[in-house]
Every structure is written in structure tokens, then in C-alpha cells.
Lab assay of single mutants.
Amino acid sequence: MASDGVVVEIGKVTGSVGTTVEIPVYFRGVPSKGIANCDFVFRYDPNVLEIIGIDPGDIIVDPNPTKSFDTAIYPDRKIIVFLFAEDSGTGAYAITKDGVFAKIRATVKSSAPGYITFDEVGGFADNDLVEQKVSFIDGGVNVGNATPTKGATPTNTATPTK
């Protein structure tokens, strides 16, 4: 695992066909100046998982989280898009600690492993708008004895992609 920078880890949970599971997305290594904004994309298989919603985690402190935390689910493109932009203008609602960034709610549709993997990152910046190093650890849903650990090695991303 990367020793510096922010680590975004997609949790690994267990479920069975027809059940709804909650998959946490963790941030670790949050910089001392916090995270003022970030955007990134995960990939998944809508034939295996139906993403039914995404909720902000406990490290989102904006009293009205829909102003700073936004997501979009595109089953036709097989992606989930995340956007966080601190909304106070003063840094008061920045992410300042490690913990759960988001909770992905999904219904298991198939007995195949439900991988959720890193696809791309736009950027991560602290309260001074300084770009942060970030790496990703894939996860998803274990169905029966299947284990979604494909790509469990962190993917280092030093520069934003478009």
C-alpha cells in the first residue's frame, strides 16, 4: 500500500443473489490541510450489481451534504461517478479525517463476483488547492465463495486525467 498520499479503498462485503448490500468507500491518509475537492470514477458490471443509491459517509460534515457531495450512476456506461467540492468557501466542510467517504447500496443480481474497480481520477486537492497523490484499492461483493480481489494492489495516480 502507498505510504504517502490519500488511499481510496472500496470495501469488500459478502452478499447473495437478491440481497441488498452496503459497500463502503474509505479514505485513508487524509492530509493535515484536509480535502477540499476530489472527483473520480469507479467501474462495475450492472449485470452483477444493480447500484440503487449512494449515501455520504461520516467524513462528509456539510450539514447539507447534497451541496458538497454528488454522485451519478450510469449503468449503460458501467460507471459510478463521485464528486466532492467543499461548499462553505472557508474550508469548514472539508474532509479532515480518515473514514467512510461514501456507502454504495447495491442489489446482487448474479452469482458472479461483484467487482467495483477504479477507472479514472480527475483530481484530489487540499484546502490550499494543492494537488494530492492518490491511490485506489478495488473491492466489491463476495457472492458465495467468490472473492472480488482483482486489482487489490493500489493504483498510483500522480496526475489528473480527463
Rank of each mutant, 00 (worst) to 15 (best):
T159I: 13
D58M: 06
G29I: 14
A152K: 07
V25H: 07
P46F: 09
V81R: 00
V21H: 05
V108M: 14
T66V: 14
S88F: 14
P63Q: 15
I73A: 01
V13W: 04
R77C: 01
S110P: 12
G123M: 00
D119S: 08
I73R: 10
S32I: 11
T157V: 09
F118Y: 05
P63M: 12
I73T: 08
N64R: 07
A85Y: 15
T71F: 02
S16K: 11
S135W: 03
K97C: 05
D4V: 07
P56F: 11
F124H: 00
A146Y: 09
G15M: 02
G114K: 09
T19Y: 10
N47M: 15
A152P: 12
D70N: 15
G99A: 09
T159S: 13
T159F: 14
K67W: 15
R28C: 15
I59D: 10
V21T: 09
D39A: 01
Y93W: 14
I73L: 04
V41R: 00
G18S: 08
E131V: 02
K103Y: 15
S32G: 10
A72S: 01
V17H: 09
T20E: 07
E22L: 05
G123W: 00
A72I: 00
V48G: 04
S110W: 11
N127C: 02
V134S: 08
G29A: 15
N127S: 02
G144E: 08
G89E: 00
F101R: 00
N145L: 11
D45S: 09
Y44F: 05
Q132W: 02
A146N: 13
A102T: 10
I35D: 04
E120V: 03
P148A: 06
V13R: 09
V61K: 14
S110H: 12
G89S: 02
Y26D: 03
G29E: 03
I80G: 07
F118I: 02
T159P: 12
I80L: 04
E50Y: 09
T96V: 12
Y74D: 00
V81P: 02
A36Q: 01
F69H: 06
P65H: 15
P148R: 07
G140H: 14
F42S: 07
P113N: 07
N37L: 00
F42I: 02
G122Y: 00
A85D: 00
A36K: 00
A158E: 11
E22D: 07
